[in-house]
């Protein structure tokens, strides 16, 4: 149980930014193995642009997600702009009217993010993309919300589900994105997007826990 104030959400966003910045090189390495090595750079660019523009402004959680999503979407091309842009703006859409955000509310926001993502990508669980991280995280959080679980417990479960989802991509063969060209050769390493998605969800969870 518990909630946090939507209006207090700025530190959560900044924590997400820091998560990406700290892992820029690592994400590049992961992408380098079966992709083109630019995932850390792409993500860092968008998230840092957001930080530059908003670190001195006041904003809430949904609002911050919307601004970050918009920046990705309109200033970061490649796949990351539309992918994370859609996820983050989808979350913001679902959350903009909340004053307080509980477990079920957060689950609803994430669920809408996933839905918006699936509007533009065909990838399903098992295709070695960030869907493998995001989808189980949504499921676990939804279940926790329905079961009325404690917020911290729910967030820890979501983090675990995201990490497990990320790790599951290791044994998969990529079906979408650059690495899909490799077929069987893509097996054996993590998916870069699944990795960054886990970093973002973990940072978000940690940030929310500090507000509770």
């Amino acid at each position: 149980m518990g909630t946090f104030k939507n209006a207090d959400g700025k530190p959560v966003l900044l924590k997400m930014v820091k998560g990406i910045q700290d892992n820029k090189a690592y994400l590049g390495e992961v992408d380098g193995l079966i992709g083109d090595g630019d995932h850390g750079m792409n993500m860092n660019k968008g998230f840092s642009l957001f930080e530059d523009r908003f670190k001195d402004k006041e904003f809430g959680f949904a609002e911050g997600l919307n601004e970050l999503g918009t920046i990705l979407f309109s200033e970061i091309g490649g796949s990351m702009g539309p992918i994370y842009g859609n996820i983050l703006m989808g979350m913001a859409d679902a959350g903009e009217d909340f004053d307080e955000i509980g477990v079920a509310d957060l689950a609803a926001m994430l669920e809408n993010g996933l839905k918006e993502l699936q509007d533009i990508v065909e990838a399903q669980v098992g295709d070695k993309t960030l869907v493998d991280t995001l989808s189980p995280a949504v499921d676990v959080l939804k279940a926790a919300g329905e079961a009325g679980k404690d917020y911290k417990e729910a967030l820890e479960e979501m983090k675990a589900a995201a990490a497990q989802g990320r790790d599951s991509t290791k044994d998969m063969v990529a079906k979408f994105g650059r690495s899909s060209r490799l077929g069987e050769r893509s097996r054996g390493v993590l998916d870069a997007g699944a990795t960054s998605c886990c970093i973002i969800l973990t940072a978000m969870a940690d940030g929310i826990m500090e507000l509770l």
Binding site: D36, D38, N42, F73, S74, E75, I76, G77, G78, S79, G81, P82, G85
Partner: peptide
């Protein structure tokens, strides 16, 4: 126009 080897934005 996108970044090097990267799609332009939807906005573009």
């Amino acid at each position: 126009v996108g970044e090097i080897c990267s799609s332009p934005t939807a906005q573009a």
